[in-house]
Design a protein around this nucleic acid. Structure first.
Lengths: 204, 204
DNA sequence: TGGGCTTTGTACCGATCAGTCGGTACCGTT
DNA sequence: AACGGTACCGACTGATCGGTACAAAGCCCA
C-alpha cells in the first residue's frame, strides 16, 4: 500500500532510476547512495525497498527480460510466414529497445555482474529469448523458405539485432523503430548482393 | 630496459593480465591490488609501471584498437572486389577476436568507463575502425555490386561482427574463425532467402 | 668496492563502499 | 488512546577503494 498514488510506486521509481543510472555509469560504478538520491531516498530508506544492490539489478533485469519474452512468444504464436514472423519479431525487438533502452543496456552490459543462482536464472531467461530467433529461422528452413541456419547464422542475426541497443538512441533520423527493424530484416532475408556476380572465392 | 628477457616485459605482463581480469570481472569491480597480484606485484610496485588504473585501461584499449585498425586498413588497401574485401575484413576481424578475445571484450564492454579526453580519443579510434566496414559497403554500392547501404545496414553488419566476441569463445565446434567469418559474410551478401527458386545451395 | 638507476615492498592517506541499526513520523483500525 | 504496519532518516560498521611516500633491495657499470 504505497502512499504515493500519483501513478508510480516507490518500488517502480527505484527500478526506473536504477535502470537509468546503471545504463549510464555501470553497475559497479554506481553507489547505493547515488541510487537512493536519484529516487529521493536516503540509503536507509532505499534498503527498506530492496534486499541488496545485486538484487535490485536482478529484479530489474528479470522483469525486463520476462516481459520481452512474453511479447516475443506472442509474435511467434501468430499464424505468419517465416519471413513475416522474422519481421514481426524484429519489430517487437526494436520497439522494446526504443521504449526501454536503459533496461536493455543494463541486461546486456551488466548481466555479468550477477552471481550465483541469479546469474544462472537470468542467463536461462536470456537464452529463452534468444531462442525465439533461432525458432523462426528453423521454421523457415523447415519449410524450405530459408537456407538452413546453423548456429553461426543464428548468433549472427541475433547479434545484429542485439547490437542495435548501442546505436538506436543516437540514430536521430526520421526512421522509426519499425523502419529500422524492416531494413535489418530485409538484409537478413535478401542480403546485400545486387549484381549477378557469382559467389566470391575466398581471399588468399 | 626490462630485466626480464624471457620474452615478456613487466609492462606487457601487466597489460595482458589486466585484459584478462577486466574482461572477466569488469573494470570497476577489479581492484588495483588484484591487478598487481595477478602480475606478481604489490600495489606500490604496480604504480611504478602504470600512471593510474584508468590509464591502464586506456593504454590497453588504445593499443588493441590501433593494431586492429592497422590490419584492417591493410585489408582495404588490397586490390579486391568489394565482396572479397568484405570477406577478408571479416576474416581479419574474427581472427583478432579469436586471438585477443579478452581485449576485444574490454574495449567493447568497458570503454564507457573511460573519462574525458581518453574517452574521446578511444571513441575516435573505434569509429575509425568501424568506418572500415562502412567503406567496404560503400565501395560495393558504388560499383553496383551491393545494394546501397544506408547507415542502418552498416550498423547492422557491424553489430553482427562485433557481437561475435560474446559467443566465439563458447563456440567449441570444428569451425575456425575463418569459417565463421565466411559464413557471416555469406549471410550479409546473399541473405537467408532460398525460395521460391533455390539458389546456390549452401553446404549444410 | 662504490655510486647511480631501476624496481619493489610496506605503510599510510582520505574517501567511499555495501549494508545494518535504532529510532521516528504517519497511517488506518480497533 | 493504544496499536501494528509502512515508510523513512541519519549515524554507524568494517572493509576496501585508488593513489602516494619512502626506504630498502637488486642491478649494471666503473
Amino acid at each position: 500500500m504505497p502512499r504515493d498514488t500519483r501513478g508510480e510506486s516507490t518500488q517502480e521509481r527505484i527500478l526506473r532510476v536504477a535502470a537509468e543510472i546503471f545504463a549510464r555509469k555501470g553497475y559497479h560504478a554506481t553507489g547505493v547512495a547515488e541510487l537512493g538520491a536519484a529516487a529521493g531516498l536516503q540509503r536507509g530508506a532505499l534498503y527498506y525497498h530492496i534486499k541488496s544492490k545485486e538484487d535490485l539489478l536482478y529484479d530489474l533485469s528479470k522483469r525486463h527480460v520476462e516481459e520481452a519474452l512474453e511479447r516475443g512468444r506472442a509474435v511467434l504464436a501468430q499464424d505468419l510466414s517465416p519471413a513475416a514472423k522474422l519481421r514481426a519479431l524484429a519489430r517487437e525487438h526494436l520497439r522494446t529497445i526504443a521504449a526501454r533502452c536503459d533496461e536493455v543496456t543494463v541486461v546486456i552490459r551488466e548481466m555479468h555482474a550477477l552471481t550465483g543462482i541469479r546469474a544462472k536464472r537470468l542467463t536461462a531467461l536470456r537464452d529463452e529469448y534468444e531462442n525465439l530467433f533461432a525458432e523462426v529461422l528453423r521454421e523457415g528452413a523447415e519449410q524450405g523458405v530459408f537456407a538452413v541456419a546453423d548456429r553461426v547464422v543464428v548468433l549472427g542475426v541475433l547479434g545484429m539485432f542485439n547490437w542495435t541497443h548501442v546505436w538506436l538512441d543516437a540514430q536521430r533520423g526520421p526512421l522509426s523503430p519499425d523502419d529500422i527493424a524492416d531494413r535489418l530484416t530485409d538484409l537478413v532475408i535478401h542480403g546485400q548482393l545486387r549484381s549477378p556476380v557469382p559467389a566470391v572465392p575466398a581471399a588468399p
